[in-house]
């Protein structure tokens, strides 16, 4: 039912790697390493600044993919894949967008399952890739029926 969305993408949104947000995120995943939060540790590191944990891109705004209307409830997160060219640096701006990479349906034990692959990108202001994030979302038959209703 979402086949038509394949290839659709959002308009990039400017995000900042905010110091406070990184601190809060590092605390929430129980990683109190000073490379994320202590300014001196950041300055003395090879990066010259603090960096963000690898799963931090969760907090970014990736814009809206046209015509992709997913329910807030009932989705199952199946897989998550990050790729980095380098770590994210605290204080930098990142331009983020998302696209529907694939959508397919398969018969499973609990009916016909749908698999939606969304890929997200983070680029620096010069357009160089910093990271990608791929997510596989599983949509059960029951949830799809509600979406069509």
């Amino acid at each position: 039912m979402l086949e038509d969305c394949i290839g659709k993408r959002s308009t990039p949104v400017k995000n900042a790697v905010e110091r406070g947000a990184v601190k809060k995120f590092a605390e929430a995943i129980g990683d109190d390493h000073p490379i994320f939060t202590d300014e001196e540790t950041g300055r003395e590191s090879r990066f010259g600044v603090n960096i963000a944990p690898p799963t931090f891109p969760r907090v970014f705004d990736y814009g809206t993919i046209p015509d992709l209307n997913l329910p807030e409830k009932g989705l199952i997160h199946g897989e998550q894949i990050y790729h980095y060219e380098r770590p994210l640096r605290v204080g930098e701006d990142v331009y983020c967008h998302a696209e529907v990479k694939n959508y397919y349906e398969r018969d499973g034990q609990s009916g016909r399952m749908a698999f939606l692959q969304i890929k997200r990108y983070g680029n620096d202001p010069a357009g160089e890739l910093i990271f990608t994030e791929e997510q596989v979302v599983i949509i059960t038959e029951a949830v799809r029926e509600r979406m069509q209703a």
């Binding site: 995943i29 129980g30 990683d31 390493h33 490379i35 994320f36 590191s45 090879r46 960096i51 944990p53 690898p54 799963t55 199952i76 997160h77 199946g78 897989e79 998550q80 894949i81 990050y82 790729h83 980095y84 380098r86 770590p87």
Partner: peptide, 20 residues
């Protein structure tokens, strides 16, 4: 991911893939 944080001076996480 925090298992890898202590190694930040030697390298960084390039790829990180999991299944739930």
């Amino acid at each position: 991911a925090k298992l890898f944080t202590p190694h930040y001076e030697e390298g960084f996480i390039q790829d990180y893939a999991v299944r739930f």
